[in-house]
Every structure is written in C-alpha cells, then in structure tokens.
Design a protein around this nucleic acid. Structure first.
Lengths: 128, 128
DNA sequence: CCGTATCCCACTCGATACTG
DNA sequence: CAGTATCGAGTGGGATACGG
C-alpha cells in the first residue's frame, strides 16, 4: 500500500528517527512563528521578539539555536559597536518556512469554520 | 509594507488570537503525526496508536479530542460489539494534513542536509 | 544592544490501573 | 476494543539578573 514509496531513509513516524526532532523544531510552538516571521525579511533579535508576540528571551534564544543547528536559520553577527546580529533563513529554511506560512494562512483563513466547529462541539458536550 | 494584505481577521502572530491554538493543535508534537497518519486512510484508535510510534493512550486521546473540537477530525463511533470507532479527516482537516505531509516529506528528503548542518554546528562549538 | 545563567513553578506527559 | 482516572517525574517556559 505504501511500501512502493518506502525506500525512504527517514521516517518521521518512527520513534527515534532524527527527522522527528527536526520537524518538532520547525513546527513547535515558537519554531513555526519564528520561521514565519523570518520569511519576509531578516530580523534582529529584538525585532524578532516583538514580531513573535509572547515569546520570552530564553525561548527565542533556544528556538534560534535549534533552528540554526538544523541548518534552517543563519546567524549573521557583525562585530560592530553596538553589536548587531541578523537572523535570516537558509535556502532550506526558506522552503520550510514557505510551507509553514501556507499552513498558517490556510488556518487563519478558515478560522470561522474552526470557531463554528468548536461551538458545536462544546454545545454537544456542555449539555451534559 | 505588509498592511496592504492585513485586512485579515485573524493573525497568528498575535498572542491571544484563537488561530494560534488551532495552529498548535495541528502542528504540535502529536497533532501533525496524527493528521499525517489519517491522510492516507481512516483508522481506529489502536491502529492510530501503532502508526504514531511512541504516543501514549492519554496523549492520543487528548490530541484527537482537540482536533475533533477544531473541526479537523471526525469521530465515527459505531454502536456494535466489540465497540468500533473510526477517525477520519474532515475536508478542512484534509487540507491541513496535506500541507503538513508536504512539510514532512520535505524534511525527510533533506535530512542529509540537516544532519550535515548539525555536525558542522557541533564541531564549531564542541571545539571549545 | 545581544544575549546567557539561574531559579522555580505549572503544566505536560507517560505509566499504570480501571471501566464500559 | 476504546477509552477515562489518577499520580508522580520531568521539563517547558517566564522572570530576573547578569555578562560581552
């Protein structure tokens, strides 16, 4: 059924496959928003922090490190004073971010449906 | 600069926008794998559990409830003995899952690059 | 300005046991 | 088979303070 395409070296459905952690970094709570924000333009640390509403310094730092390690984000530190560091997407990061953004826009554009579904669900249960 | 397209009612970058929680349900650790697994065929609870390697009963149950509430997954319980419940995607769930699967395949197909990037990163740091 | 280090609480998650 | 209930360990993540 699916085995004709299963000469894949990596299978994210398998527990210890390294691709799963990469997917989690990219789709995680802050990862997806960070990548999405960087799609339009490269940004500095605090610009990014303002754009991704609600992220703490710690989590943004952590998120950026994970994405940089996975080769999705490039850190460009310029040795000037005051220090200036720009974060931008790598080519691979751009591909990933593009798909993420497509998903984000799809969800944003269908929130009416989602909200309606939630109301229906809650009414069917709240009755009990 | 982006405001010409910003007549959007929902903005996931904003902290309390409900679209953010929906995105998190869909892209979360188990949400993305669950939706991906259901894309090919509808599955029963324990089939799903076997397919999504590593998920516990509790988390699968929780994940399915969240996705059902958001209108991405449909729960079809048949009152037979032994009980049989099938989970399938709604049309919206199918669109979301399709994009997720595209992302999954992209990541799986580029894991060589990711792994190489990780090695580079670790060597540059491990040296210290 | 650009982060890292530390503390600590809340909540997530997994294991186990139990019900219909 | 298809879940729910409970509990305890681990960790995600915010606040704060500090270093380059």
């Amino acid at each position: 059924m699916a085995s004709d395409t299963d000469d894949l070296a990596f299978d994210v459905f398998s527990r210890q496959c390294p691709s799963r952690s990469t997917l989690e970094h990219a789709t995680g709570r802050w990862g997806s928003l960070t990548l999405g924000a960087l799609y339009e333009e490269s940004l500095r640390f605090n610009e990014l922090r303002r754009r991704v509403d609600g992220v703490s310094e710690k989590m943004l730092s952590q998120t950026l490190h994970a994405l940089e390690r996975d080769g999705l984000v490039l850190r460009d530190a310029q040795p000037v004073n005051p220090p200036r560091v720009d974060y931008e997407l790598t080519p691979l990061g751009r591909e990933v971010a593009g798909r993420l953004l497509g998903l984000i826009h799809l969800v944003e554009g269908r929130m009416d449906d989602v909200l309606a579904a939630r109301t229906r669900y809650d009414e069917a249960r709240g009755g009990r």
